[in-house]
Design a protein around this nucleic acid. Structure first.
Lengths: 186, 234
DNA sequence: GCTTTAAAAAGTAATTT
DNA sequence: AAATTACTTTTAAAAGC
C-alpha cells in the first residue's frame, strides 16, 4: 500500500548557466587543479566538484553545463563553488548567473512486477519502444507531463526528460493510473 | 533550362541506381540468411515505402566489409548527395533494417546479430535504423516471440519435432509466469531448447545451443535455471 | 549526426580471479 | 563458475565538425 510516488528519488540533474565572460580554456586548464581539457575530443573543459559531487563542462563562451548533481540545490551549490573558483582566478563572474534546469532523471518503484509484452500492446505500440534484444526496458513517451519513462520487468522505472521536480511525481501517478486501467499492475 | 532537365535525368538515374542497389542488397543478405522469396518481397516493399516517404535521410554510410562494394556504395551515396536526394541516410542501413523488419513481420525473425553478420552495417546502426523506419512507417510490430526461433534453431541442431514442441511448451509456461519480461528472445529460446533436449534425451551441450543462437553459455544457464523452476522440475 | 558529462534501471558479454 | 568491468537505452545543455 506504499505509494509509488513516495519511492521517487532524483538521480541526476542537468542544468546550464553562463558567467557572461569569454574564457581562455587553455589558461584555465593550467590554473584549475583537476581540470580535464582535450580540445581535440571535445570543446569543453571538464571540472568535477567533490561536495556536492557533480561535473561541469565549461566552454570558451563562458557558458557552463552542470550534471551529476542529486538535487537542484546541489546544482546551485556546485555551480556556486565553480563561480568562486573562477573569481579566485581574477575572472569576472556575474553576481548571480541565471541557472536553468534542463533535465531531471529520477527513479521509482511501482511495487509490482510488470508484463512488458502486454504493456507494450496495452500502452499502444505507437508510443512504445520495447526491443528486449537490445535493451531490457520498455521506453514509453508520455505527453503530459512530457517525459520519457523506462519501465522494467521488476516494476522499477526511470523518468527522464522533465524540467520540474513535479514532472516525475505527475508522471508516476499517470503511468500507475494507465497501467491499472489496463489491469496490468499486480 | 537544359541544365535543369539534365539534372532531373541524373537525379532519376541515381534514384534508380539506389533502388536497384538496395534491392540487390536485400536479395544478397536474404539469400545468405536463407530467407524465403516471399519474405524478400516484403522487405522490398518496406524499402520502397521508406523511399517514398523520404526516410533515407540523416544516416551515414558506416558499414565496411568488402572494399569494392563499399566503394560502389560511396559513389552512389555521393551522387545521391550531390543530387540532393539522400542527404545522409545509408541505403545499406535502410536495406538491412527493412530486411530485419520484414522477417519479423512474417513471423520468421532473425536476431540483429544474425542480420549484422550478412550486412555491411554495424549492428548498432541496424537497430537504430530499424527503430526509426518502424516508427516513421508505423509498422507497429509486436515484440519478438521466442517461440519463433525454435524451429530454425532446433533444425540447425538436428533436434526432433518432440524437442521442438517441448521447447515451445517451456517457453509458454515460463512466459506465462512472467519470466520473459526484459529478457532477450534468442536467449530465452536457446535455454528452452537446451532444457527440452535434456528432457527428451537428445542432449545438446550449452555450447552447441549457444553457438546456434549466438548467445553465451552464461545466458543459457541463467534462463535455464529459471525455466526449469517455472516448469516445476528441479 | 557525432564528440563529452552523469545517473538510474536490468540484461548480456567479455575478462579476471 | 563467480566476480568485475563495461556496454546497451533515455534525457538535456554546451561549441564545432
Amino acid at each position: 500500500m506504499t505509494n509509488p510516488a513516495d519511492s521517487i528519488e532524483i538521480q541526476n540533474v542537468v542544468a546550464s548557466t553562463g558567467i557572461g565572460q569569454e574564457l581562455d580554456l587553455e589558461a584555465l586548464a593550467e590554473d584549475l587543479p583537476g581540470a580535464d581539457f582535450n580540445p581535440d575530443n571535445f570543446p569543453g573543459l571538464v571540472y568535477r566538484t567533490q561536495e556536492p559531487k557533480a561535473a561541469a563542462l565549461i566552454f570558451r563562451s563562458g557558458k557552463i553545463v552542470c550534471t551529476g548533481a542529486k538535487s537542484i540545490d546541489d546544482v546551485h551549490e556546485a555551480l556556486g563553488i565553480i563561480f568562486e573558483k573562477l573569481r579566485g582566478l581574477q575572472i569576472p563572474v556575474e553576481d548571480d548567473p541565471e541557472i536553468t534546469v534542463q533535465n531531471i532523471v529520477s527513479s521509482a518503484d511501482l511495487g509490482h512486477n510488470l508484463n512488458l509484452n502486454a504493456l507494450a500492446i496495452g500502452l499502444g505500440l505507437e508510443d512504445v519502444e520495447y526491443e528486449p534484444e537490445q535493451f531490457p526496458g520498455l521506453v514509453y513517451r508520455m505527453d503530459e507531463p512530457e517525459v520519457v519513462i523506462l519501465l522494467f520487468g521488476s516494476g522499477k522505472i526511470v523518468i527522464t526528460g522533465g524540467k520540474r521536480t513535479d514532472d516525475a511525481e505527475e508522471a508516476v501517478e499517470e503511468i500507475v493510473e494507465r497501467i491499472e486501467g489496463l489491469g496490468l499492475l499486480g | 533550362r537544359l541544365r535543369k532537365w539534365q539534372e532531373r535525368i541524373r537525379t532519376k538515374d541515381a534514384g534508380e541506381r539506389n533502388l536497384q542497389f538496395a534491392l540487390s542488397e536485400i536479395d544478397r543478405m536474404a539469400s545468405a540468411l536463407g530467407v524465403p522469396r516471399s519474405v524478400r518481397e516484403v522487405a522490398s516493399v518496406i524499402y520502397r515505402r521508406a523511399l517514398n516517404e523520404d526516410l533515407i535521410r540523416g544516416r551515414s554510410i558506416e558499414g565496411v566489409s568488402t572494399a569494392a562494394l563499399y566503394a560502389a556504395c560511396r559513389v552512389i551515396y555521393r551522387r545521391a548527395l550531390n543530387e540532393d536526394l539522400i542527404r545522409g541516410r545509408s541505403i545499406e542501413g535502410v536495406s538491412t533494417a527493412a530486411l530485419y523488419a520484414a522477417c519479423r513481420q512474417e513471423g520468421i525473425p532473425r536476431s540483429l546479430d544474425e542480420v549484422a553478420d550478412v550486412s555491411r552495417v554495424p549492428q548498432k546502426e541496424i537497430g537504430r535504423t530499424y527503430r526509426y523506419i518502424s516508427q516513421e512507417l508505423g509498422l507497429e510490430l509486436k515484440p519478438v516471440d521466442p517461440k519463433q526461433f525454435v524451429p530454425r534453431f532446433a533444425s540447425a541442431l538436428q533436434l526432433s519435432e518432440e524437442v521442438q514442441s517441448k521447447a515451445t511448451e517451456i517457453i509458454d509456461v515460463s512466459a506465462e509466469q512472467g519470466l520473459l519480461s526484459g529478457k532477450s528472445p534468442t536467449g530465452f529460446a536457446a535455454a528452452a531448447i537446451y532444457a527440452a533436449s535434456l528432457l527428451c534425451n537428445e542432449k545438446k551441450t550449452q555450447r552447441e545451443v549457444a553457438d546456434v543462437a549466438q548467445v553465451t553459455e552464461v545466458t543459457i544457464r541463467n534462463r535455464y535455471q529459471e525455466q526449469i523452476e517455472a516448469m516445476g522440475f528441479r
